[in-house]
């Protein structure tokens, strides 16, 4: 291969991902940013312009509280998911190889279910007529079956169910790569098993934990079906409102403006948390 050919082929290998990035990410995003400044036409769609009214409309107490709800819900879901996934992954690592694979396959199978299926499944499981309330009543734990949905708890449950496999997916490899002799060494030095775990395994996987938190957080921000299926209107997230504006109100410029703002705020939060993590380690 001549050096000119080599340069040519390396340009080619760089060009393909770049082209894909431009085609599938930069271009659509630019269009969305452009649309967010367009003017809506009542009864029609929109026409090109440069107005800031879409962004101005967002600066209201109503959308402020929607934004706060979205962020809090996502943060809550990510904390709960990781809090469950972390000990779960640790126990998984202690299992035999074959058992580990089997359980992982089950956990990851959840990923193949769509948000729609998960939402409807939970809403019937939590309902009064067909749900686990009947089981509890049957077992004599409650007097009469009642519905647990819609509500904040039901919504959180759904979001965590969705986020958990992702958290396991991030945490499990890191824990299984950790030298099992490290917590054992702590035990030999006098630490009880729990103390050894908290003193070595947890601090050593801090980056993994923050990675899993960020992933589930970002992922939960995008959920727009679960809040409608399992939550009350006051739990509707920004994603729900964006969908609503774009599809049902046909106000694409406003939806685009909200999406752009939402993206910026999420990126900002993720960036800040990564920066904090870097500084501490």
């Amino acid at each position: 291969m001549t050096s000119a050919e080599r340069v040519g082929s390396s340009i080619l290998t760089a060009a393909i991902p770049a082209a894909m990035l431009i085609c599938f990410f930069v271009l659509p995003f630019s269009i969305m940013v452009a649309v967010s400044f367009f003017e809506r036409v009542q009864g029609a769609f929109f026409e090109p312009a440069f107005v800031l009214s879409n962004y101005e409309r967002f600066l209201s107490p109503f959308f402020g509280s929607v934004l706060a709800t979205s962020l809090l819900l996502a943060a809550g879901a990510s904390v709960v998911s990781v809090a469950v996934a972390y000990p779960f992954a640790w126990m998984l690592v202690q299992f035999r190889r074959r058992g580990q694979t089997l359980i992982l396959v089950f956990v990851l199978a959840v990923l193949s279910l769509s948000e729609v299926i998960i939402g409807f499944a939970w809403s019937s499981l939590l309902s009064r007529t067909a749900g686990i309330g009947n089981l509890l009543a049957f077992a004599g734990l409650v007097d009469a079956p009642r519905s647990y949905t819609p509500g904040l708890a039901a919504l959180m449950l759904g979001l965590c169910y969705l986020g958990l496999p992702y958290a396991v997916l991030v945490i499990y490899p890191a824990l299984s790569r950790l030298d099992p002799a490290i917590p054992e060494a702590a035990r030999m030095l006098g630490a009880s098993p729990l103390r050894a775990f908290l003193g070595t395994v947890v601090p050593l996987s801090r980056n993994t934990i923050s990675g899993a938190l960020i992933l589930v957080f970002v992922f939960s921000l995008g959920a727009y079906l679960l809040p409608q299926l399992l939550g009350r209107p006051q739990h509707w997230t920004l994603s729900v409102h964006i969908t609503d504006q774009a599809i049902f109100q046909s106000n694409l410029p406003f939806a685009a403006a909200m999406a752009v703002l939402f993206l910026m705020i999420s990126l900002l939060l993720v960036g800040v948390s990564m920066l904090l993590g870097r500084q501490r380690s």
Partner: peptide, 20 residues
């Protein structure tokens, strides 16, 4: 008697020093 109450010193094959 669990390992953490035996008061033994141990050097592991991988050393298992605490990198943090």
């Amino acid at each position: 008697v669990p390992a953490h109450r035996r008061e033994f010193g141990m050097v592991f094959q991988s050393l298992a020093l605490f990198p943090h």
